[in-house]
Nucleic acid binder design. Structure first.
Lengths: 221, 221
DNA sequence: TGGCTAATGTACGAACTGGTTCGTTAGTCA
DNA sequence: TGACTAACGAACCAGTTCGTACATTAGCCA
């Protein structure tokens, strides 16, 4: 989440539409992630900004559209990370593992993103549906996965018959759950899935799981 | 979720503490799942009940405690399902697959439960923490998993070095994600993870994944 | 340099919401 | 059978919350 820098306000009013907009988005992201859509307070967002509530309505139109804008930016960030992925020079096994680790790392580094997605689920993805930007964003990772899968199957290493979307779901589910259920799981089973000293353990576990699934001996089938 | 039956109200006031309490819980479960904790309206819950808001405060004390009670009952239901599990006569591979399928089926059959857990995560599990009942509920499934794992390792079938809690997390993550991200994932990737005609596909995929992980050839390690 | 507009700030209000106050009644038990 | 209490209902209240009407100003361009 790109954070707006903090230039000491030179007393009077500053006119900088881009900065004002970005600052509202930053604070709104935090507030929505903190309290959910309904729980988030427009006044609270305004108060933690160097501008006023009036500007939120001026730039975004309303609470609903503001949340949509927040989601759009959050998804853009993860898509950009995926785009920087460069694994196709690796052998299929290493490539998949690398890709899974990228997802793992991103989820861990962006708990706010996970919270926003959880919140959006409660609202049945209506804001995503309302956004043209998100409908067309696609997922670069999907193309990469598709190519790695094809290469792996061709070489005979991968035996599983999955497509890119399902494998992406499998990888995401593990990464998502670990963060999204950190507190509930912790309270119920007494284990912190995001504890720092367990990080490598779960990161390896994810890779092992995906590779085992893809390369399992299916001669008995 | 046990639903209260609907005896035609015989005109006057009926006094049935247990029924009133249960009815409030039923409606509250729906309302909280629908709109989240903050989004849920106490007045709305009362309106959809044959009693009044006054009774909610009479029996539960407040919105917060009502939500805690709703969570307690929801978790109790899944724990009961786990308790009825009878898989220890099966071989380890079949037993684990059976257990994974039970979790799969329960998550699919109880989307409201998934929503409640997601909502509780947004509130950092504070209601679970506030409930003595939930702190001690444990998970019968964990004991079962532990015994199956031990048997599988002893027979040499299972090569993975996981404990019951982590395997439970792995199974749950797949089942949880599929339901919890149904709408968001669908809107972004155009695939409904809970589509009826894909049910067997994902159910098999889960089992394959877990078994592959547990039985993977680790001789190269 | 003067005017024009995008950008900004202040103050307010109508509707809502969780929670409470006060009064009523059904059922039971001595 | 009468009194006592658990169970219930209606109306209300104080604080909050999204959204807006109105006033103002910075900065650019003719």
């Amino acid at each position: 989440m790109t954070t707006v820098e903090e230039p000491a306000r030179s007393g009077g009013r500053i006119r900088d539409a881009a900065r004002t907009r970005a600052e509202i988005l930053d604070v709104a992201t935090q507030e929505f992630a903190r309290a959910g859509f309904t729980g988030a307070r427009v006044d609270e967002i305004a108060a933690r900004t160097r501008t006023t509530k009036r500007m939120i309505y001026y730039y975004f139109g309303g609470k609903e559209q503001l949340f949509t804008a927040v989601l759009e930016r959050a998804y853009t960030v993860i898509r950009q990370a995926e785009q920087q992925l460069d694994v196709e020079h690796l052998d299929p096994v290493a490539a998949i593992r690398r890709l899974a680790e990228l997802t793992f790392d991103h989820h861990e580094a962006h708990p706010d993103f996970i919270r926003l997605v959880s919140i959006e689920y409660i609202h049945e993805a209506e804001h995503i549906a309302a956004s043209e930007a998100l409908g067309a964003i696609g997922s670069p990772a999907l193309d990469v996965i598709g190519r790695i899968l094809a290469a792996g199957r061709e070489s005979g290493l991968f035996t599983a018959d999955v497509d890119a979307v399902d494998l992406h779901a499998m990888i995401s589910s593990f990464c998502f759950f670990r963060v999204a259920n950190r507190h509930t799981f912790g309270a119920l089973f007494g284990r912190d899935l995001v504890a720092a000293d367990q990080r490598e353990h779960y990161r390896t576990m994810l890779g092992d799981m995906v590779i085992a699934y893809l390369t399992a001996d299916r001669s008995a089938d």
